[in-house]
Design a protein around this nucleic acid. Structure first.
Lengths: 159, 159
DNA sequence: TATTGTTATACTCTATAACTATA
DNA sequence: TATAGTTATAGAGTATAACAATA
Protein backbone atom coordinates (compact mmCIF):
# COMPACT_ATOMS: atom_id res chain seq x y z
CA UNK A 1 0.00 0.00 0.00
CA UNK A 2 1.06 3.58 -0.60
CA UNK A 3 2.70 5.60 2.14
CA UNK A 4 0.55 8.33 3.61
CA UNK A 5 1.51 11.83 2.50
CA UNK A 6 4.31 13.27 4.62
CA UNK A 7 5.41 16.87 5.05
CA UNK A 8 8.47 17.97 3.13
CA UNK A 9 9.42 14.98 1.06
CA UNK A 10 12.07 14.07 0.15
CA UNK A 11 13.84 14.74 3.47
CA UNK A 12 16.35 17.54 3.12
CA UNK A 13 19.95 16.67 2.26
CA UNK A 14 23.14 17.79 3.92
CA UNK A 15 23.41 20.92 1.77
CA UNK A 16 19.97 22.15 2.79
CA UNK A 17 20.77 21.45 6.43
CA UNK A 18 24.04 23.35 6.09
CA UNK A 19 22.19 26.30 4.61
CA UNK A 20 19.49 26.23 7.28
CA UNK A 21 21.84 25.84 10.24
CA UNK A 22 24.25 28.35 8.74
CA UNK A 23 21.44 30.86 8.50
CA UNK A 24 20.47 30.18 12.11
CA UNK A 25 24.07 30.46 13.30
CA UNK A 26 24.53 33.72 11.43
CA UNK A 27 21.35 35.22 12.89
CA UNK A 28 22.30 34.20 16.41
CA UNK A 29 25.80 35.57 15.96
CA UNK A 30 24.36 38.87 14.73
CA UNK A 31 22.25 39.07 17.90
CA UNK A 32 25.28 38.44 20.08
CA UNK A 33 27.56 41.00 18.48
CA UNK A 34 24.72 43.54 18.45
CA UNK A 35 25.31 43.69 22.22
CA UNK A 36 28.71 45.19 21.36
CA UNK A 37 27.07 47.49 18.78
CA UNK A 38 28.71 45.60 15.95
CA UNK A 39 27.36 44.01 12.80
CA UNK A 40 28.83 40.74 11.50
CA UNK A 41 30.56 42.37 8.51
CA UNK A 42 32.32 44.73 10.90
CA UNK A 43 33.47 41.78 12.98
CA UNK A 44 34.89 40.10 9.89
CA UNK A 45 36.71 43.27 8.96
CA UNK A 46 38.11 43.61 12.49
CA UNK A 47 39.44 40.06 12.25
CA UNK A 48 40.86 40.64 8.80
CA UNK A 49 42.73 43.75 9.93
CA UNK A 50 44.05 41.86 12.96
CA UNK A 51 45.24 39.05 10.71
CA UNK A 52 47.06 41.30 8.23
CA UNK A 53 47.73 44.68 9.85
CA UNK A 54 48.93 47.61 7.77
CA UNK A 55 47.28 46.52 4.54
CA UNK A 56 45.59 48.99 2.23
CA UNK A 57 41.81 49.07 1.90
CA UNK A 58 42.14 47.61 -1.59
CA UNK A 59 44.19 44.70 -0.26
CA UNK A 60 41.71 43.98 2.52
CA UNK A 61 38.83 44.27 0.06
CA UNK A 62 40.50 41.68 -2.14
CA UNK A 63 41.13 39.37 0.81
CA UNK A 64 37.48 39.57 1.84
CA UNK A 65 36.25 39.40 -1.75
CA UNK A 66 34.24 42.57 -1.54
CA UNK A 67 34.20 45.75 -3.64
CA UNK A 68 36.52 48.39 -2.15
CA UNK A 69 33.69 50.90 -1.99
CA UNK A 70 31.93 48.72 0.54
CA UNK A 71 34.90 48.90 2.86
CA UNK A 72 34.68 52.65 3.18
CA UNK A 73 31.53 52.72 5.30
CA UNK A 74 32.68 49.65 7.21
CA UNK A 75 36.02 51.24 8.12
CA UNK A 76 34.30 54.55 8.84
CA UNK A 77 32.05 52.89 11.39
CA UNK A 78 34.93 51.21 13.18
CA UNK A 79 37.16 54.29 12.98
CA UNK A 80 34.44 56.57 14.37
CA UNK A 81 34.37 54.39 17.46
CA UNK A 82 38.13 54.27 17.80
CA UNK A 83 38.54 50.58 17.00
CA UNK A 84 40.64 50.99 13.85
CA UNK A 85 42.84 53.71 12.36
CA UNK A 86 43.78 54.72 8.85
CA UNK A 87 47.50 55.46 8.64
CA UNK A 88 48.29 57.45 5.53
CA UNK A 89 51.42 56.21 3.80
CA UNK A 90 53.88 59.15 3.53
CA UNK A 91 55.58 57.82 0.40
CA UNK A 92 52.31 57.14 -1.42
CA UNK A 93 49.61 59.31 0.02
CA UNK A 94 46.88 57.44 -1.81
CA UNK A 95 47.26 54.45 0.49
CA UNK A 96 45.52 54.08 3.84
CA UNK A 97 47.13 51.38 5.95
CA UNK A 98 44.59 49.83 8.31
CA UNK A 99 45.50 49.09 11.93
CA UNK A 100 43.66 48.11 15.08
CA UNK A 101 43.80 50.45 18.05
CA UNK A 102 44.19 49.17 21.60
CA UNK A 103 40.41 49.48 21.95
CA UNK A 104 40.06 47.45 18.77
CA UNK A 105 42.24 44.69 20.18
CA UNK A 106 40.24 44.74 23.41
CA UNK A 107 37.01 44.42 21.44
CA UNK A 108 38.50 41.53 19.50
CA UNK A 109 39.26 39.82 22.79
CA UNK A 110 35.68 40.21 23.89
CA UNK A 111 34.54 38.84 20.55
CA UNK A 112 36.65 35.79 21.14
CA UNK A 113 34.77 34.89 24.34
CA UNK A 114 31.51 35.70 22.69
CA UNK A 115 32.40 33.39 19.81
CA UNK A 116 33.03 30.51 22.21
CA UNK A 117 29.67 31.02 23.86
CA UNK A 118 28.13 31.12 20.39
CA UNK A 119 29.82 27.85 19.49
CA UNK A 120 28.50 26.21 22.64
CA UNK A 121 25.02 27.53 21.98
CA UNK A 122 24.90 26.21 18.42
CA UNK A 123 26.66 22.90 19.02
CA UNK A 124 25.12 22.11 22.40
CA UNK A 125 23.61 18.91 21.04
CA UNK A 126 27.06 17.42 20.37
CA UNK A 127 29.68 16.26 22.82
CA UNK A 128 33.30 17.38 22.52
CA UNK A 129 34.39 14.49 20.35
CA UNK A 130 31.45 14.83 17.98
CA UNK A 131 32.04 18.54 17.71
CA UNK A 132 35.62 17.89 16.67
CA UNK A 133 34.49 15.40 14.04
CA UNK A 134 31.90 17.86 12.72
CA UNK A 135 34.51 20.60 12.58
CA UNK A 136 36.95 18.35 10.72
CA UNK A 137 34.34 17.47 8.10
CA UNK A 138 33.32 21.09 7.63
CA UNK A 139 36.94 22.12 7.19
CA UNK A 140 37.38 19.47 4.51
CA UNK A 141 34.33 20.76 2.67
CA UNK A 142 35.56 24.34 2.99
CA UNK A 143 38.95 23.38 1.55
CA UNK A 144 37.33 21.41 -1.24
CA UNK A 145 35.27 24.50 -2.09
CA UNK A 146 38.36 26.73 -2.05
CA UNK A 147 37.10 29.00 0.69
CA UNK A 148 39.73 31.31 2.10
CA UNK A 149 40.22 30.11 5.70
CA UNK A 150 38.68 32.48 8.23
CA UNK A 151 36.87 34.53 5.60
CA UNK A 152 33.10 34.39 5.43
CA UNK A 153 31.91 33.93 1.83
CA UNK A 154 29.02 36.28 2.54
CA UNK A 155 31.38 39.09 1.53
CA UNK A 156 31.66 37.72 -1.98
CA UNK A 157 29.26 38.67 -4.72
CA UNK A 158 30.54 35.93 -7.03
CA UNK A 159 30.83 32.41 -5.46
CA UNK B 1 59.82 31.56 21.79
CA UNK B 2 56.64 33.23 20.65
CA UNK B 3 54.71 31.84 17.71
CA UNK B 4 54.95 33.88 14.54
CA UNK B 5 51.81 35.86 13.76
CA UNK B 6 49.22 33.75 11.96
CA UNK B 7 46.23 34.86 9.93
CA UNK B 8 42.84 34.60 11.60
CA UNK B 9 43.57 33.41 15.10
CA UNK B 10 41.97 31.70 16.88
CA UNK B 11 40.93 29.19 14.18
CA UNK B 12 37.20 29.39 13.49
CA UNK B 13 34.91 27.08 15.43
CA UNK B 14 32.14 24.86 14.16
CA UNK B 15 29.51 27.62 14.34
CA UNK B 16 31.55 29.92 12.09
CA UNK B 17 32.15 27.08 9.66
CA UNK B 18 28.44 26.30 9.62
CA UNK B 19 27.65 29.93 8.88
CA UNK B 20 30.29 30.17 6.15
CA UNK B 21 29.41 26.90 4.42
CA UNK B 22 25.72 27.61 4.82
CA UNK B 23 26.18 30.93 3.10
CA UNK B 24 28.11 29.23 0.30
CA UNK B 25 25.49 26.50 -0.06
CA UNK B 26 22.70 29.07 -0.16
CA UNK B 27 24.46 31.14 -2.83
CA UNK B 28 25.13 28.09 -4.98
CA UNK B 29 21.55 26.92 -4.60
CA UNK B 30 20.30 30.35 -5.64
CA UNK B 31 22.42 30.09 -8.80
CA UNK B 32 21.02 26.68 -9.61
CA UNK B 33 17.36 27.57 -9.17
CA UNK B 34 17.89 30.81 -11.10
CA UNK B 35 18.15 28.53 -14.13
CA UNK B 36 14.48 27.70 -13.51
CA UNK B 37 13.72 31.40 -12.96
CA UNK B 38 13.07 30.79 -9.29
CA UNK B 39 14.42 32.42 -6.16
CA UNK B 40 15.11 30.32 -3.04
CA UNK B 41 12.13 31.75 -1.06
CA UNK B 42 9.85 30.70 -3.92
CA UNK B 43 11.28 27.19 -3.80
CA UNK B 44 10.62 26.99 -0.08
CA UNK B 45 7.06 28.12 -0.62
CA UNK B 46 6.55 25.58 -3.39
CA UNK B 47 7.74 22.85 -1.03
CA UNK B 48 5.56 24.11 1.80
CA UNK B 49 2.46 24.09 -0.39
CA UNK B 50 3.28 20.58 -1.59
CA UNK B 51 3.69 19.44 2.00
CA UNK B 52 0.39 20.89 3.23
CA UNK B 53 -1.88 21.54 0.24
CA UNK B 54 -5.06 23.54 0.65
CA UNK B 55 -3.83 25.68 3.53
CA UNK B 56 -4.60 29.38 3.74
CA UNK B 57 -1.91 31.97 3.18
CA UNK B 58 -1.98 32.80 6.87
CA UNK B 59 -1.41 29.16 7.78
CA UNK B 60 1.49 28.83 5.35
CA UNK B 61 2.93 32.10 6.60
CA UNK B 62 2.83 30.76 10.13
CA UNK B 63 4.45 27.48 9.08
CA UNK B 64 7.28 29.34 7.36
CA UNK B 65 7.55 31.92 10.12
CA UNK B 66 7.13 34.89 7.85
CA UNK B 67 4.68 37.82 7.86
CA UNK B 68 1.62 37.07 5.71
CA UNK B 69 2.21 40.19 3.63
CA UNK B 70 5.43 38.70 2.37
CA UNK B 71 3.60 35.69 0.99
CA UNK B 72 1.49 37.81 -1.31
CA UNK B 73 4.23 38.70 -3.76
CA UNK B 74 5.71 35.22 -3.45
CA UNK B 75 2.40 33.54 -4.31
CA UNK B 76 1.77 36.12 -7.04
CA UNK B 77 5.03 35.25 -8.75
CA UNK B 78 4.31 31.52 -8.69
CA UNK B 79 0.66 31.98 -9.70
CA UNK B 80 1.55 34.24 -12.64
CA UNK B 81 3.62 31.42 -14.01
CA UNK B 82 0.98 28.80 -13.42
CA UNK B 83 2.81 26.86 -10.72
CA UNK B 84 0.32 27.45 -7.89
CA UNK B 85 -3.35 28.39 -7.67
CA UNK B 86 -5.43 30.25 -5.12
CA UNK B 87 -8.73 28.44 -4.56
CA UNK B 88 -11.23 30.71 -2.92
CA UNK B 89 -13.17 28.98 -0.14
CA UNK B 90 -16.91 29.25 -0.99
CA UNK B 91 -18.04 29.11 2.65
CA UNK B 92 -15.56 31.78 3.78
CA UNK B 93 -14.57 33.91 0.85
CA UNK B 94 -11.75 35.55 2.78
CA UNK B 95 -9.66 32.37 2.59
CA UNK B 96 -7.39 31.46 -0.29
CA UNK B 97 -6.47 27.79 -0.24
CA UNK B 98 -3.09 27.26 -1.90
CA UNK B 99 -2.54 24.33 -4.28
CA UNK B 100 0.13 23.27 -6.73
CA UNK B 101 -0.80 22.94 -10.38
CA UNK B 102 0.46 20.07 -12.54
CA UNK B 103 3.13 22.45 -13.79
CA UNK B 104 4.02 23.20 -10.18
CA UNK B 105 4.42 19.51 -9.41
CA UNK B 106 6.58 19.10 -12.50
CA UNK B 107 8.77 21.98 -11.40
CA UNK B 108 9.06 20.43 -7.96
CA UNK B 109 10.26 17.23 -9.60
CA UNK B 110 12.95 19.15 -11.47
CA UNK B 111 13.94 20.86 -8.23
CA UNK B 112 14.40 17.48 -6.65
CA UNK B 113 17.03 16.45 -9.19
CA UNK B 114 18.63 19.83 -8.96
CA UNK B 115 18.80 19.48 -5.18
CA UNK B 116 20.64 16.19 -5.48
CA UNK B 117 23.20 17.73 -7.83
CA UNK B 118 23.53 20.58 -5.37
CA UNK B 119 24.14 18.14 -2.54
CA UNK B 120 26.82 16.35 -4.52
CA UNK B 121 28.45 19.64 -5.42
CA UNK B 122 28.63 20.85 -1.81
CA UNK B 123 29.52 17.53 -0.19
CA UNK B 124 31.88 16.28 -2.87
CA UNK B 125 34.74 16.10 -0.37
CA UNK B 126 32.94 13.46 1.70
CA UNK B 127 32.22 9.84 0.86
CA UNK B 128 28.73 8.39 1.28
CA UNK B 129 29.26 7.20 4.82
CA UNK B 130 30.76 10.49 5.97
CA UNK B 131 27.94 12.39 4.35
CA UNK B 132 25.42 10.32 6.30
CA UNK B 133 27.29 11.00 9.55
CA UNK B 134 27.40 14.72 8.78
CA UNK B 135 23.70 14.73 7.98
CA UNK B 136 22.89 12.90 11.21
CA UNK B 137 24.83 15.42 13.29
CA UNK B 138 23.24 18.37 11.53
CA UNK B 139 19.78 16.92 12.12
CA UNK B 140 20.55 16.55 15.81
CA UNK B 141 21.64 20.19 16.00
CA UNK B 142 18.53 21.28 14.10
CA UNK B 143 16.28 19.37 16.50
CA UNK B 144 18.14 20.74 19.50
CA UNK B 145 17.57 24.24 18.12
CA UNK B 146 13.85 23.56 17.56
CA UNK B 147 13.97 24.19 13.84
CA UNK B 148 10.85 23.10 11.99
CA UNK B 149 12.02 20.20 9.79
CA UNK B 150 12.19 21.17 6.13
CA UNK B 151 11.70 24.87 6.81
CA UNK B 152 14.58 27.25 6.23
CA UNK B 153 14.99 29.64 9.18
CA UNK B 154 15.84 32.41 6.73
CA UNK B 155 12.11 33.05 6.56
CA UNK B 156 11.97 33.96 10.23
CA UNK B 157 12.53 37.46 11.49
CA UNK B 158 12.79 36.34 15.11
CA UNK B 159 15.09 33.27 15.73
C1' DT C 1 47.33 58.04 -17.72
C1' DA C 2 46.69 54.78 -13.80
C1' DT C 3 45.43 53.85 -9.10
C1' DT C 4 43.39 54.58 -4.19
C1' DG C 5 39.87 55.81 -1.84
C1' DT C 6 35.30 58.09 -1.84
C1' DT C 7 30.67 59.44 -3.05
C1' DA C 8 26.26 59.13 -5.60
C1' DT C 9 22.90 56.43 -7.24
C1' DA C 10 19.98 52.68 -7.82
C1' DC C 11 18.35 48.17 -6.81
C1' DT C 12 16.75 44.14 -3.99
C1' DC C 13 14.72 42.35 -0.10
C1' DT C 14 12.08 42.75 3.80
C1' DA C 15 9.06 44.42 7.69
C1' DT C 16 5.47 47.49 9.40
C1' DA C 17 1.36 49.44 9.17
C1' DA C 18 -2.64 51.05 6.76
C1' DC C 19 -6.34 49.46 3.96
C1' DT C 20 -10.23 46.42 1.62
C1' DA C 21 -13.28 42.60 1.63
C1' DT C 22 -15.53 39.44 3.89
C1' DA C 23 -17.46 37.51 8.15
C1' DT D 1 -15.85 43.98 15.53
C1' DA D 2 -12.58 40.67 13.94
C1' DT D 3 -9.99 38.27 10.38
C1' DA D 4 -7.73 37.14 5.50
C1' DG D 5 -5.48 39.11 2.26
C1' DT D 6 -3.46 43.16 0.02
C1' DT D 7 -1.05 47.50 -0.79
C1' DA D 8 1.95 51.41 0.50
C1' DT D 9 5.77 52.92 2.58
C1' DA D 10 10.15 52.91 4.51
C1' DG D 11 14.50 50.93 5.90
C1' DA D 12 18.71 48.07 5.56
C1' DG D 13 22.30 46.34 2.83
C1' DT D 14 24.71 46.10 -1.30
C1' DA D 15 26.74 46.82 -6.13
C1' DT D 16 27.92 49.88 -9.94
C1' DA D 17 29.75 53.63 -11.71
C1' DA D 18 31.27 58.34 -11.51
C1' DC D 19 34.54 61.24 -9.06
C1' DA D 20 38.69 63.51 -6.51
C1' DA D 21 43.29 63.10 -4.99
C1' DT D 22 47.66 61.39 -5.75
C1' DA D 23 51.09 59.09 -8.36
Amino acid sequence: MAASPQPFEPPPGAAFLLSALGSLAAARFAERVAALDLAPPQVGLLRAIAATPGQSQQAVAQLLGTPPSRLVALVDGLADRGLVERHRNPTDRRLHALHLTDAGRATLGRLENLGQEHDNDICGALDTEERARLRAMLIRIAEDQNLTPGVHPGYRRDC
